[in-house]
Computed example of a mutant assay.
Amino acid sequence: MTADVPIVVIGLMGAGKTSVSRLLSKALGRPMRDSDEYLEERYGATAAEIAAGEGAEVLHAREAAHLLDSLAERPAPVIAAAASVLDDPRCRTELKPALVVWLDATPEFLAEKIMARSHRPRFGKEPLELASELHERRAASFTEVADLRFQRPEMSKHEVARAVLDHLEATGAGG
């Protein structure tokens, strides 16, 4: 792996993708692309607002487009990708050359994070129900694409970033 390979941080909402991606971006001197920030800048709405106003399909299509565009950028960025991108076969295919870092977390941990921030869509469900359903639905896809997997909150965001940087150093792919 070389510095021109994107690093993609995946996980369910609330797992810490944005924070870990920021830490990696800063340490590696790479640009960062974040799905939530992209939605707000491009469409003037949060993921929750898009889901409520235009529907989950529109939200997920925009999240997939963000990932695909970001993967094509050079220099290769660090990308905090929405979990929904794994529902799109094109995205799973395009992730193959990237270093994919999965932040796995229990539904209970994620539910607390979902409740804490209004920008996260709930799709008409209670946070624990939503987190449990999404974890069950997407775990196989995360396993399919992930090169590295870290348990949150057992590992802090800083510990995860350090482990990724150590991996990159060990493989000569730092950047």
Results as ranks from 00 to 15, higher is better:
residue 100 V to Y: 04
residue 137 R to A: 12
residue 91 C to Q: 03
residue 81 A to V: 04
residue 143 T to N: 05
residue 90 R to N: 07
residue 82 A to S: 15
residue 99 L to Y: 05
residue 124 G to T: 09
residue 113 K to C: 11
residue 84 S to Y: 05
residue 127 P to E: 07
residue 144 E to Q: 14
residue 132 S to F: 03
residue 71 L to G: 07
residue 109 F to P: 05
residue 120 R to H: 03
residue 109 F to D: 12
residue 110 L to D: 04
residue 108 E to D: 15
residue 95 L to P: 00
residue 72 A to V: 06
residue 132 S to M: 02
residue 106 T to A: 14
residue 117 R to I: 02
residue 90 R to I: 04
residue 136 E to G: 15
residue 122 R to M: 12
residue 68 L to K: 01
residue 125 K to W: 00
residue 85 V to W: 01
residue 74 R to M: 04
residue 145 V to T: 12
residue 63 E to L: 02
residue 112 E to A: 13
residue 92 R to I: 08
residue 140 A to C: 05
residue 110 L to H: 03
residue 71 L to M: 06
residue 128 L to E: 14
residue 114 I to P: 01
residue 130 L to V: 13
residue 132 S to K: 12
residue 111 A to K: 02
residue 78 V to K: 04
residue 69 D to P: 00
residue 138 R to P: 04
residue 141 S to P: 00
residue 128 L to C: 08
residue 103 L to Y: 10
residue 88 D to L: 05
residue 81 A to C: 02
residue 121 P to E: 02
residue 94 E to L: 14
residue 133 E to W: 14
residue 136 E to D: 14
residue 70 S to W: 09
residue 142 F to S: 11
residue 72 A to P: 01
residue 74 R to E: 10
residue 123 F to H: 08
residue 70 S to A: 15
residue 116 A to W: 08
residue 95 L to Q: 06
residue 92 R to N: 05
residue 101 V to P: 06
residue 100 V to A: 10
residue 77 P to G: 12
residue 93 T to S: 07
residue 100 V to L: 08
residue 68 L to G: 02
residue 85 V to A: 04
residue 102 W to C: 05
residue 86 L to G: 04
residue 78 V to R: 03
residue 96 K to Y: 02
residue 97 P to R: 11
residue 91 C to S: 13
residue 119 H to C: 07
residue 116 A to T: 11
residue 86 L to T: 06
residue 90 R to L: 07
residue 66 H to C: 10
residue 139 A to T: 12
residue 87 D to A: 14
residue 104 D to F: 00
residue 136 E to P: 00
residue 122 R to Q: 13
residue 65 A to Y: 00
residue 86 L to R: 02
residue 78 V to Q: 06
residue 84 S to D: 03
residue 89 P to D: 05
residue 99 L to C: 09
residue 127 P to I: 05
residue 80 A to N: 02
residue 96 K to M: 09
residue 81 A to D: 06
residue 93 T to Q: 13
residue 124 G to W: 05
residue 113 K to L: 01
residue 129 E to F: 00
residue 70 S to Q: 10
residue 116 A to L: 13
residue 135 H to Q: 12
residue 115 M to K: 15
residue 114 I to S: 02
residue 114 I to V: 15
residue 125 K to N: 06
residue 127 P to C: 04
residue 129 E to K: 09
residue 64 A to S: 15
residue 66 H to K: 02
residue 102 W to Y: 14
residue 118 S to M: 03
residue 79 I to E: 06
residue 77 P to R: 11
residue 129 E to T: 13
residue 122 R to F: 01
residue 134 L to F: 09
residue 91 C to I: 01
residue 63 E to W: 02
residue 102 W to L: 13
residue 143 T to Q: 11
residue 102 W to D: 03
residue 74 R to D: 08
residue 112 E to I: 11
residue 132 S to C: 00
residue 143 T to I: 06
residue 95 L to E: 06
residue 71 L to C: 09
residue 135 H to R: 14
residue 120 R to C: 01
residue 86 L to D: 04
residue 89 P to C: 05
residue 80 A to S: 14
residue 127 P to N: 03
residue 91 C to H: 02
residue 81 A to K: 01
residue 100 V to D: 13
residue 107 P to T: 08
residue 136 E to C: 09
residue 138 R to N: 08
residue 131 A to E: 09
residue 87 D to K: 10
residue 126 E to W: 08
residue 142 F to I: 07
residue 95 L to C: 07
residue 107 P to H: 10
residue 127 P to G: 07
residue 100 V to W: 10
residue 91 C to N: 00
